[in-house]
Design a protein around this nucleic acid. Sequence first.
DNA 1: CGGTCCTTTGAGCGCCTTCAAAGTAGGTGG
DNA 2: CCACCTACTTTGAAGGCGCTCAAAGGACCG
Lengths: 241, 241
Amino acid sequence: MNKRIQLSTETLRCSTCGLGQFCLPVGMAPADAHKMDELVQLRLRVGKGQPLFRAEDGLDAVYGIRFGSLKTLVELADGRQQITGFHLPGEVIGLDGLGRETHASTAVALEDSEVCVIPIRDLSVVATHLPSLQRQLLRLMSRELENDQQLLLSLGAMRAEEKLAAFLISLSDRLSARGYSSSQFVLRMSREEIGNFLGLTLETVSRLFSRFAKAGLLRINQKEVELVDVPALRQIVGRQC
Amino acid sequence: MNKRIQLSTETLRCSTCGLGQFCLPVGMAPADAHKMDELVQLRLRVGKGQPLFRAEDGLDAVYGIRFGSLKTLVELADGRQQITGFHLPGEVIGLDGLGRETHASTAVALEDSEVCVIPIRDLSVVATHLPSLQRQLLRLMSRELENDQQLLLSLGAMRAEEKLAAFLISLSDRLSARGYSSSQFVLRMSREEIGNFLGLTLETVSRLFSRFAKAGLLRINQKEVELVDVPALRQIVGRQC
DNA sequence: CGGTCCTTTGAGCGCCTTCAAAGTAGGTGG
DNA sequence: CCACCTACTTTGAAGGCGCTCAAAGGACCG
């Protein structure tokens, strides 16, 4: 089970959280950001491999990632699944269920992680009187739509090589926006998960990593990657994505 | 260019529009629905093959489809494109750009169509004081997220036969919800567009139609389809989607 | 240190694509 | 109204990209 962490007034809150620039409070005036503090009273620890929520579950909260990383996925009746996203600290997940008040996807931790619980009951109450929060919700959801559309482009219109290059570039950009190295990082997901995400098999992903490494585009050792020739990788994608 | 139609007080408005159950006013109290009338002062005629908006364009409105149908798509730098949706009357398109105030996708009419113009400037003003509209916006966006996720599942996890069956079933359901026949309808899009949408080539789509017809699952004559054995089609998809 | 899971690499195959050509529909202008 | 043109569709044949099957080598964990 996921471990609950009750927040006291002393604890780090939204208004002082360094991830604010990616999370719900983006672009809010300090006064408004303080109202977020009332909203988030609880955090959850989610162990590696543990689900945070499952598709079809009733939705009573959305979640901001404090540390760690999670994947979201949707499933077919026969068990086949499609990973729809890998999520980093500062991202808010669960928004795709807001309409039906039922989760549309399942979220699973890729590593031990911690998330801030944002109860939607309170969220909608606060948002009613807080235009900046309304706007931010719409902004986050439309960003998620854009992400899905990029993934659709990957799955539908790219070849294997381009898919993996696009994946690495995108991950590099997101990590670098969060202050991590853009060229050296650890893949928290397995080859199989990358393959599933991109519509490839794990063997194809592994072969592509080997081929990219042989071509001098990157170095790879298990889950550690170092992008050596980013411009070449970008060119594989098509110099714009 | 698209033809503008200024609305008078006499004209059919949101509060009396039969498509309200699919469009922005879903589930609004009559009093609230009337406020929508102030919002929509203009309609546009879009000729077959004409763009309603293009990705990267500034976004100053979202659009409710009155009649006709449109496709939305995203593009790669080299021109390859991925169709992300086919849209029917009552659907609101352009929401994916709300965050950046820039369109994230391009919308093109599949046939001569008419859309209601919903200016976002006014929309956000009205929404601030109208919680039912805020909720409806979130609901529409999260539904769009769900649609994208279903498509991701198609593109990434299904085989050609399943993709086409799922496409037909989904279209049938949506048409029937709008009062059209669920078993006989006209495909407004070409084989190439269906293929692009599903991550297949136009030849594969054509062959699948022929194969389905030979198996007695459907009849097809150019763009006219009649679904003969819907249960069998659903079974191909995996009896749940 | 044993077990399990993940990754790598090879060989062969199959689904879907590519290439090609003929057939059909729809629209336009003479 | 018909001839022509263009765009779309159908069908066949051949080929390739990525998959499936298989096995060995590492890494991680209790």
